[in-house]
Design a protein around this nucleic acid. Structure first.
Length: 964
DNA sequence: ACCGCCGGGTGCC
DNA sequence: ACCGCCGGGTGCC
């Protein structure tokens, strides 16, 4: 019986992307199984989601008595083509979750199925409903899935062989049947989730993962930094996850058997445990520190990592270690990275080897070079294979580990006993598979945080503790397996890992004690080399650290669960079938199952989480003031003129019920009013009424101008087709804005007479207008001669000058939605001699980082003000150098303002944050603020209210804004 | 498998 | 006896 074999191949060592060499091994009967799996995995790669259910069919599994695979009532089985079968090239074998063969599909049916499976016309899935009642064969319910366009072919083909597919039940009952366990089956019809509910649930998937994860654990002594309560909690949880023999989620022990409640699979052998999980704490909560604590605290069986204390009697070894190397490390760590945290390097005995700045520089072309500028001296010593010092360390490490005593050093007598029979080589190579011999934690991180890890080890470890950390990076990295597996910690980057994987480097051969993926969400595309490399790493324990575990979708999660080897979902087939497809199709139980899986292996706290009733992190206070601005008489007159005209127009639209039809116009009017509130130069000089468009070119100009208005209006316009924010926005001749793909689809569907979804005018693909490729053309020069001030500018300048006189160390963010306003503001700032920088969406990546560095730097003479465009930069934008925020104009969406404020009110902020919102009295701005409040209330009261009334509420908004 | 099928043994009742 | 019938051997693909 080759169960053992198939178990290993499929159940454990299996990734859908096993080494391709396996294809060509003719001696293996399972080769084709594997290639089949790979092919299947590839075939369904991009859009397995697009599959629809063709129908169901009852079939027979035969040959049960020849195999050991067992199935239970209701268990799902896998169907795998077996073209190399010597008896029948159409063979389709039936397997259970572990990949153990259960039997074959009866040959006539197999022939029909093979035809379609081989041509990727259909995927077939099976469930055994009846359980086994004889030792020879059993019925199986097969469901056929595929692309809609292949449905006919499949049905015909099956019919021609005498098989008629029964339709799946209309409510997507296939889900109830196959998606989940018996529970949903009994319930029968359930209402599928709406896209919105799904998105919501998904956004919150990682929320509230704190329950019953309390219990704190102190770090071992060698961790110098005292852990905060939430970090102790995390440590306790992580240790438990590594040490406890808990079954993976959805598995339970039933008598002698291990049972999976989602697939109804059971087996005598326990499923592989997930020793590890996802630590998904928010940025800044100390994932790195917690991980360091874990490494030091939980070596084996809850015992700490044996590390050498550098005390007197052991001083010989200390003397022989190389202090020069650590000092290099100190140099290369950025000065600003850990203010006040630097320890004297003399005391620092952490053994960090081969951290040469030039290594960091040479290899990758990442834009990170700035950090390690010291290229000059390439004479720094690097370990080589035969470096005696390394062997010394290695002896030392092995000796300390206790379980694999190594031969004593040639030169020194370690205080710890040695075993003279064993050579150094054998002591290290032996039994890397043995649980107790694995010593090393491998940390994989993006290059950008590599130095951070080193800093943090240095910062958080007790100075008298000696830890072997090896930075596996750079062209001269030591590829010696023995050497690497004798380290306590090896740190490398994703890039190195994947290049090494391609070149068959050592990383994938070593049996690690623990592998840590830092910023684990960067591994997402399962086809990428990097992912394959990551999935193949051999380790007892696996961890993913990530502040943002979910970036896009359910799909991304697979990679994480597969890395953790969460049985059986590390196999794509089972993941797709049991989780991904049900969830994407809105199956509630599918979602529940997913939530449950994630919950069991994830710990996530945000900066708002509480431990023992106290905030996990305490941020300095934040105060928001509204400063009312009075318009000057002239400004007021201009404003009122525009307002009255706008009110008339919009009033007419409201009366006609044509607000939405003229939405672009309405927005333009509101926009103009908002611009008046800031500065009249913001208004487009060429008043671009969409009047009688004389020439097509003029019309086009007008439309582009409108499109710009809509986009610049900051109203978070969404495409009314996809109800999401605009992607590749285009404007129709009737002046409505959509995503290009969305409207193209609408036009495509309606063929000859496509109509605008908003106003039913005829629209054509050829008439869609988008931004000219040059995009935003330059600002109209506001020459300093013609420059005028405005009431709002006066208000701002007054604040800035006062602040400067009070404390000229304080830095400010001056925020507007109008980048042209920012430009106008530059003039008075210059006039008053303020040093400022500007950050907006139009800047190149390089420029952005430069500006941020400049602004964040505390160097004397640096900028104290940043002109910031409201939505520029993602949530990651860190502007903690600033503690004052001036919001020049209100945003439609209060959350946008909050996000903006959070760029400085976040971890790392030491001062109180004061926010000033300028609001022009008696204007649209005031009304906008009222609406903001109303919306905030709504959000707080009713959570995730349906979006059905979006349009009407929008019209109401507009009426409120114009006081109509 | 308390089946179906195959093929050898057998041959009135 | 170039059939039918009986009963044992056998059994996935």
């Amino acid at each position: 019986m080759d169960t053992g074999m198939s178990f290993r191949r499929w159940g454990f060592g299996w990734g859908p992307f096993d080494d391709v060499d396996l294809f060509s091994e003719p001696s293996e009967t399972q080769t084709d199984t594997l290639s089949q799996i790979i092919r299947a995995a590839r075939a369904e790669e991009p859009d397995a989601d697009g599959c629809v259910l063709f129908g169901n069919l009852k079939g027979t599994v035969v040959g049960l008595r020849y195999y050991t695979g067992v199935v239970n009532r209701g268990e799902m089985v896998g169907l795998v083509r077996e073209p190399q079968n010597p008896y029948d090239s159409n063979a389709v074998k039936v397997t259970n979750i572990y990949g153990n063969q259960v039997g074959h599909i009866k040959k006539e049916l197999a022939a029909a199925m093979a035809y379609m499976m081989d041509r990727s016309l259909a995927k077939v899935e099976g469930v055994v409903h009846t359980g086994v009642n004889n030792p020879f064969s059993m019925p199986v319910m097969l469901s056929f899935w595929g692309k809609e366009e292949d449905r006919n072919t499949v049905m015909k083909h099956m019919a021609s062989r005498g098989y008629k597919l029964n339709p799946g039940s209309p409510t997507g009952g296939s889900l109830a049947l196959y998606g989940t366990s018996a529970s949903s089956y009994k319930k029968g019809v359930t209402v599928p989730l709406t896209a919105e509910e799904l998105k919501n649930a998904f956004d919150n998937l990682f929320d509230g993962l704190m329950e019953s994860k309390d219990g704190e654990k102190e770090a071992v002594e060698s961790v110098a930094t005292a852990l905060l309560p939430h970090q102790k909690q995390a440590l306790s949880w992580m240790c438990a996850r590594e040490n406890k023999d808990a079954l993976p989620p959805c598995w339970e022990k039933r008598g002698e058997l291990y049972y999976n409640s989602l697939t109804c699979f059971s087996a005598k052998e326990p499923p592989g445990r997930v020793r590890g999980g996802i630590l998904a704490d928010d940025m800044g909560l100390g994932k790195t520190l917690t991980t360091i604590a874990l490494i030091l605290t939980n070596f084996h069986k809850g015992k700490p990592l044996p590390v050498e204390k550098c005390e007197e009697q052991l001083s010989p070894c200390k003397a022989k270690s190389k202090p020069a190397q650590i000092s290099k490390l100190e140099e290369s760590s950025r000065a600003d990275s850990n203010p006040g945290a630097s320890r004297s390097s003399d005391l620092m005995t952490t053994e960090v080897i081969d951290i040469d700045a030039e290594d960091v520089v040479v290899v990758e072309d990442e834009p990170q070079k700035g950090k390690s500028k010291k290229k000059k001296n390439p004479t720094k010593r690097k370990p080589r294979k035969e470096d005696p010092v390394l062997f010394e360390d290695l002896d030392f490490a092995a000796a300390l580990s206790g379980s694999t005593p190594a031969v004593g050093a040639k030169k020194k007598k370690t205080a710890v006993k040695t075993n003279p029979e064993q050579s150094v080589e054998s002591s290290v190579t032996v039994n890397t598979d043995d649980d107790l011999s694995a010593r090393t934690t491998l940390i994989i991180c993006p290059l950008s945080v590599l130095s951070n890890w080193l800093d943090q080890f240095k910062q958080h470890m007790n100075p008298d503790v000696k830890l072997n950390i090896y930075l596996y990076y750079g062209p001269d990295r030591n590829r010696n397996k023995k050497f690497l597996s004798s380290q306590d910690v090896v740190i490398t980057t994703y890039n190195v890992l994947s290049t090494d994987f391609a070149n068959k480097g050592p990383l994938n051969e070593i049996s690690w004690l623990r592998v840590v993926l830092d910023e684990g969400h960067v591994v997402r595309n399962p086809n990428a080399q990097m992912s394959k490399a990551v999935l193949e790493l051999k380790a007892q324990r696996r961890w993913i650290l990530s502040g943002t575990p979910i970036q896009n979708s359910v799909k991304d999660l697979w990679m994480l669960l597969a890395f953790l080897r969460l049985k059986p979902f590390d196999a794509r087939e089972w993941w797709n079938r049991v989780i991904q497809r049900p969830v994407l199709q809105g199956d509630r139980d599918g979602l529940k199952n997913l939530q449950n899986l994630v919950k069991c292996i994830t710990l996530r706290r945000t900066k708002n989480s509480e431990v023992n009733g106290r905030r996990v992190v305490s941020l300095p206070e934040k105060t928001v003031f509204v400063e009312q601005v009075e318009l000057s008489q002239q400004e007021r007159e201009e404003y009122e003129l525009a307002r009255n005209e706008g009110r008339r127009t919009i009033g007419r639209y409201v009366a006609e019920g044509s607000v939405l039809k003229n939405y672009a116009d309405v927005l333009a009017i509101l926009m103009r009013l908002r611009q008046y509130c800031c500065h009249s130069d913001l208004l487009p000089k060429t008043s671009s009424d969409l009047g009688p468009a004389a020439t097509p070119a003029e019309l086009r100009e007008c439309l582009i101008e409108k499109l710009r208005l809509v986009l610049a209006s900051g109203s978070d316009e969404e495409c009314c087709v996809c109800l999401d924010s605009l992607v590749l926005p285009v404007i129709t001749h009737c002046a409505h804005v959509f995503c290009r793909p969305c409207i193209a689809q609408v036009i495509g569907n309606e063929q000859d007479k496509a109509r605008c979804p908003l106003c039913r005018s005829e629209i054509k693909t050829s008439e869609l207008v988008e931004f000219p490729p040059e995009g935003m053309e330059q600002e109209k020069n506001v020459s300093s001669e013609s420059w005028r001030t405005s009431s709002k500018i006066q208000a701002l300048m007054g604040n800035l000058l006062r602040l400067q006189s009070e404390d000229n160390n304080i830095k400010c963010l001056v925020v507007s939605q109008f980048t042209r306003f920012l430009t106008i503001l530059e003039t008075p700032l210059r006039q008053h001699g303020f040093r400022f920088v500007r950050f907006d969406g139009s800047m190149s990546r390089q420029k952005r980082t430069q500006v941020i560095e400049e602004f964040q730097s505390s160097a004397a003479g640096g900028p104290t003000i940043m002109l910031l465009s409201l939505k520029a930069g993602g949530v990651g934008l860190n502007l903690t150098a600033a503690s004052r925020v001036f919001l020049m104009d209100p945003a439609w969406n209060p959350a946008t303002e909050e996000q903006c404020i959070d760029r400085c009110h976040r971890l790392g902020q030491n001062r109180k944050v004061v926010v000033t919102k300028f609001i022009v009295k008696n204007s649209v701005e005031e009304n906008m603020v009222k609406i903001q409040r109303k919306k905030q209330d709504l959000v707080e009261k009713a959570f995730g209210l349906p979006s059905t009334n979006k349009k009407t509420s929008r019209i109401d908004d507009i009426r409120a804004l114009m006081e109509l």
